[in-house]
Nucleic acid binder design. Structure first.
Lengths: 137, 137
DNA sequence: TATTGTTATACTCTATAACTATA
DNA sequence: TATAGTTATAGAGTATAACAATA
């Protein structure tokens, strides 16, 4: 009896994610916002580590980071002991952009959530951590 | 009280959708699979209608469709009354590919669903249509 | 000699502009 | 003259290969 649920859930999740993705950030690509968010979450990282976390090759991440640095949202600093490595981190300006971005996205969803009955909200509240577990690590 | 739920739900949905997207189809781009699925769902469409539904420009859809036609998954037929238009539709081979693709994706999810307690499955079953309503039309 | 990041180059996907055929 | 689709061309984004600096 899990097959029909799987199918329905997959379609619902993909449809909602596509809709959410349309709520985009002006001036920055999705890869750039994602990289910036990872920097904020993880703290200073080497460029290679960031590339691995974002599942792109180092040359691609070099480009993404260069764009963020040029926009003043991230910065490169030398690694304290290994001078081959470059540490990348989010700047205060980048932090502000991420916060504004999250507010804006949450707002779109929150508006729709306000239209739902209390019972549905409780179901969603219970469902969120389960969806998380399905996504795995 | 809806803001924290909105944030949590957004992260969960996006994370799961990213994970689902990794279960890709060999040899076809995401746009091609999406266009093929729309053709199947809507029946024969003009190329322009399909481009509008998929939110891409007509020249982009020309390329996508050409790839699908070359692979034998879709076909172009002349419009019965307006010879400027081209109707595109999925072939039997395309239908089979879509079915196999769905089975494979469902399988990945179904496997993870089998590990969940009955209570969680019921929550997800109730949540799916609510997520759908959030996505809108 | 191995590793980290960058530069050089190419491929995919999508876009806009110009063109052809038809209405 | 307007519309549907295609072809020509350009711009993102990401990849692999070659290179420079450092371990």
């Amino acid at each position: 009896m899990t097959a029909p649920l799987g199918s329905a859930l997959r379609i619902s999740v993909m449809r909602l994610s596509r809709r959410m993705r349309q709520e985009r950030t002006e001036g920055l690509s999705a890869s750039q916002v994602a990289a910036l968010a990872t920097m904020e979450r993880q703290g200073p990282l080497s460029l290679g580590e960031l590339a691995a976390l974002e599942r792109v090759q180092p040359p691609s991440m070099t480009r993404v980071v260069t764009g963020l640095v040029d926009a003043g949202l991230a910065e490169r600093t030398p690694h304290p002991t290994d001078r081959r490595q470059v540490l990348v981190s989010v700047t205060e300006s980048g932090r502000q952009l991420l916060a504004a971005d999250r507010r804006r996205r949450d707002e779109w969803l929150a508006e729709r959530l306000r239209e739902l009955p209390q019972k549905d909200l409780e179901i969603l509240r219970a469902a969120a951590p389960i969806l998380d577990r399905l996504a795995g690590t």
